[in-house]
Amino acid sequence: MKKILVSISLFAALGASLSAGDGAGSVAMPFAEIPRNAAALGEGGVHLAGSSSSLAYGAFENIAALPFTTSKVDVGGGYEMWAPKQSNEKFINFGAGVHFGKFAASVAGSLGNNEPYTEYREGGFEGSKFTPKDMHIAFGAAYGITKNIGLGVSGKYLSNTLSSAAAYSAFGVDVMAFGSFGPVNVGAGVRNIGSKVKSYSGDEFSIPTAASVGVAYASAFGLGAELDADYVFAAGPDISAGAHYCWNDMLTVRAGYHVGAVLPSFLSLGLGAKFFGVYVDAAYLVSPAVPSGTLCISAGYRF
């Protein structure tokens, strides 16, 4: 099914208030919102209505969409260099999923390694260096309750080691639904329902719990498009829109746009190739903001 993604911009008003910094700083472990699937990232980070869903990374995306994929097995891994001009965090991503009958399951993970930073004491006294690390592990399962509707649940573990004395972890759950109605798919759910992270000063911060809804359209000519809307309760709305053109189920070009509170705005471009089950996807972000220069490569094997 070809899907044509039409970029949609909802930006201007949202962008001004976000740049003031309201909300975004209130979300703990925001790295959980970074797309790990290069195909999804290439389409502006869409992840709810199945436009670029991957069986391997389904636990990170809409798990309820997995019973409606065409693949039976998908194993993949990837490398992601996020915001090289700012955060410069490097992730190793991996995932695996299976689909049999009305049932599907996926397990995925992402291990992030930051640039080391120098510690400084009060007064500016230099200390030692430390390298922060992130980890995002998810496991999900879904079931097609009808031939059009599926439901799924993902559980996830997030951890963040910031210094020799500060390491945080949290648990979250996604409860998702998916509906496939001809060329139109709809996805919705509540993501990252979970524990809070407590800072040294005693304040508690939520992981990016969000209510999400998305719709995708796939044409018969290899075009497809999707529009997602997430509302991160602690931060604000995230909008992702993307489109792709797949030629002969072998080559795919992608583009998308994202604007949001947790992830800043970016324009994404992506390419994909698949041959005899082996697939490679790449996405590159063009943005005036922090994510500019982000590169994500995913590869795997699905059948």
């Binding site: 976000l18 740049s19 003031a20 910094g21 975004a24 700083g25 979300v27 925001p30 790295f31 919102e33 970074i34 996020w82 915001a83 700012q86 955060s87 965090e89 930051n114 992130d134 931060a235 509170a261 947790v262 992830l263 800043p264 943005s287 903001a289 922090v290 994510p291």
Partner: peptide, 12 residues
């Protein structure tokens, strides 16, 4: 300006 790891500006 203070920017989060994902790129969101939290202070300016």
């Amino acid at each position: 300006s203070v920017v989060s790891a994902t790129g969101a500006t939290v202070f300016e």
